[in-house]
Nucleic acid binder design. Structure first.
Lengths: 328, 328
DNA sequence: GTGAAAGCGCTAACAC
DNA sequence: GTGTTAGCGCTTTCAC
């Protein structure tokens, strides 16, 4: 086997407990002794076994990060940032994909529980009730979801939606279509609320909301035909993928974007930046969300369970998929 | 704390070792006893502590997966597949990002070592020598890299490159440009070799190779101006991102794709599918690679360290970024 | 300031 | 077939 604390102790000529102290409570040990221990450790290439120390301390120095679909371009920047920040704080992170299945999600939490100090749940598919129950046993942070008593990182998509609505109104659009996301999606609900709110005092503007729509390009293509039927000239899609799909569907049907119909996405993924026309989209601060989630989680862990919330601002980036409403 | 094997033992009225056996070696225990144990376990919601058992068995049931950049669209499908397959086999996976930095990569391996049974290194930036040395201490599988004595999953990019060359020749292109990847990239080297090989007996065709290029859209934009200088009408880029960048750069310079210059990418990422024109690209079987890597790793772990290789076929998908060579 | 000893949750001989 | 015991690598009282 690899080198253990015993080997270090032997080489340094001290007891194992002294080595342990030298590593994790240096002030409790004589400077000279500590030096000898450290030298011995370096010489042997000693690395403490985190799993072993977890057994006594109850701290694994591991985190779980559970997402619905790693391959969905929304998640990778968040995962990357979370993982990078965790590394800075000397934590490792288990990344797991639920394939949008709440049962897998719950199972994953169960099997991960003993090996982590806490879990970040990104846009979970689990019910609030389940999350509340589980959060009694393990610190959680949810991203883009609000659950009583559970720390959360929220990207203020409502604000972004308001921006998108204003943008379209400014371009002269008077008939708007909001393509909702999957049933039960928190952010979709926020978008709907915000869009309604923004139009409350505008009785010259009509808002149509359709859904649920699959959060994918295919979902967007399927939704495209509804655009024509709705008569809307301004469309806000649940996410970039859906927006890209809508544009694709519209283009196939001979409808030009943005000349005849303007489309706004959500997320600001690579996909949207690469699409032609380049997508006007609501920017979700995913890297910041990843960092904040880990930060909050570590606070929750250290702070002994007080829940907190971080709200992150969204913004609108105007590119090529939106333009002036067609005359008439 | 949570429920332990002791609680189960107490409830079932047996010794802890019997519980342990009932869980991991059921055939060694009386059917009736096992039943009682299982019932007790279920009743209490008992979950074995993997970290604790790892202490005695030496098996953590965890894997490490180290990639250069989670946010690069090449990786997520691989990560997703690896993680899903690992879950089926009752393994959890630590995912870590090195930011293309070999030092971080090595450090990560070091800190992960004690907590995993093996590590998958995807397109590592580490030197062969380092990998060989590290592989003495821990089972590894490398993806798209060949290191003596280390199991590997190879995507046969050489074959794909041959296909791309043939495709361009068939379209009448006689002056080809290969945009190499980062220095030290195994797959870039394979591509160069294959391209040269494919043109060995064609002295009517000229091949120019330039590089290294950053494996990003920006790298591609930067490379675009070299295309004009080379006089090439057919370009094979190191990956989709570079291809997209080249097209962007070319377009800005007023060069039309594919009418004047044809561009082939590598990877078949979402990005390429979404790009306009849609990218003709060499398809990398990334999900299969993720699965195979985990499979090989588990074999290596169980089999006690014999190394093996899996080679995965690549193919070419023709879309809109390639076309007949311009006359003249 | 350092050593001795007990114990975290679990497994693996070894008895019986 | 089951209980006893020791021990994995580490931390944490408790003495001295």
């Amino acid at each position: 086997m690899a080198v253990t604390i015993r080997d270090v102790a032997a080489l340094a000529g001290v007891h194992v407990s002294t080595v342990s102290r030298a590593m994790s409570a240096p002030h409790l040990v004589n400077a000279a002794t500590r030096e000898r221990v450290m030298t011995a450790a370096r010489q042997l290439g000693y690395r403490p076994n985190r799993a072993a120390s977890a057994l006594t301390t109850g701290r694994t120095h591991n985190l779980g990060l559970i997402v619905a679909d790693i391959a969905n371009p929304f998640f990778p920047p968040l995962i990357k940032a979370a993982q990078a920040y965790a590394r800075e704080r000397e934590y490792h992170v288990f990344v797991a994909d639920t394939d949008e299945d709440p049962q897998i999600e719950e199972e994953l939490i169960g099997t991960l529980a003993k090996q982590v100090d806490g879990v970040v749940l990104v846009a979970p598919r689990l019910s609030n009730q389940s999350i509340e129950r589980l959060s009694l046993e393990l610190p959680f942070v949810v991203v883009n979801r609000q659950v009583k008593g559970v720390s959360a990182v929220l990207m203020d998509i409502g604000h972004g939606t308001g921006l998108a609505v204003e943008h379209l109104l400014g371009l002269g659009h008077r008939r708007l279509l909001l393509l909702a996301g999957p049933r039960g999606s928190w952010s979709s609900a926020q978008m709907e609320r915000a869009a309604r709110l923004a139009l409350l005092d505008r009785d010259d503007v009509e808002l149509v909301i359709t859904g649920p729509n699959a959060p994918t390009e295919t979902g967007g293509i399927a939704a495209a035909e509804g655009v024509g039927r709705s008569g809307a000239t301004g469309v806000i899609a649940y996410n970039d993928l859906v927006a890209i799909g809508v544009i694709e569907g519209l283009t196939r049907a001979g409808v030009r974007v943005p000349e005849e119909v303007s489309v706004v996405g959500v997320d600001d993924t690579v996909a949207g930046r690469l699409n032609r026309p380049k997508l006007t989209t609501i920017v979700m601060p995913t890297p910041a969300a990843g960092r904040s989630a880990v930060d909050l989680l570590l606070q929750t862990i250290d702070g002994g369970g007080v829940s907190a919330q971080t709200s992150l601002q969204t913004s609108l980036v105007e590119r090529e998929s939106t333009g002036p409403a067609p005359a008439g």
